[in-house]
């Protein structure tokens, strides 16, 4: 048995998986090889270091369960509220782009804090963090389209005059 074979055998021995015959060959090698003796000692140290590693206290099981319950509710509410026309990211982008074109074609008025940037693609070219607020043809309603950077979602808000209803794509 050479050193490489001995180290592999030590790995198995450490996990209680070494065959008896291999154990004899390993013993014979260890008797004459100080490097592999050191390797064997260090292997034990690796195991004990990992086992003795302190883990900062996490939340109590009760507190953790309360958080998980809230997260489950949130996920279920989100799934229930997702509109039937939520059909995947590509179509979400396509729908948003179509909406922008419709809005652009309508020659609608801009208002609000963020002005659109003029680009070669036209005044409504959308940038990741840009927020666009436009009036729509609907009486008293306005639309806001932006990309939510954290979620990576294209968000379209349709805001009635009183504020309130919105749809998220």
């Amino acid at each position: 048995m050479n050193c490489r074979g001995a180290q592999r055998a030590l790995n198995l021995r450490h996990d209680g998986q070494l065959m008896a015959a291999d154990g004899e060959a390993l013993g014979a090698h260890l008797a004459i090889c100080p490097d592999c003796q050191t390797f064997a000692v260090r292997m034990e140290q690796v195991g004990s270091q990992l086992r003795e590693e302190p883990v900062p206290e996490g939340p109590t099981p009760e507190a953790a369960w309360a958080s998980v319950q809230r997260a489950i509710r949130l996920a279920e509410d989100g799934a229930a509220r997702r509109p039937a026309w939520d059909v995947g990211p590509w179509l979400r982008w396509a729908s948003a782009a179509a909406l922008i074109l419709v809005v652009a074609g309508g020659g609608l008025l801009w208002h609000g804090g963020v002005a659109p940037r003029e680009t070669a693609a036209g005044p409504l070219a959308l940038h990741a963090t840009q927020v666009l607020r436009v009036t729509t043809g609907l009486e008293g309603a306005s639309t806001m389209v932006y990309e939510d950077e954290a979620a990576g979602w294209m968000v379209v808000w349709v805001i009635p005059a009183e504020g309130g209803n919105h749809a998220q794509m």
């Binding site: 009760e62 953790a64 369960w65 998980v68 319950q69």
Partner: peptide, 8 residues
């Protein structure tokens, strides 16, 4: 919840 608390 019992499962979760057991393995948390």
């Amino acid at each position: 919840g019992e499962l979760m608390k057991h393995y948390q």
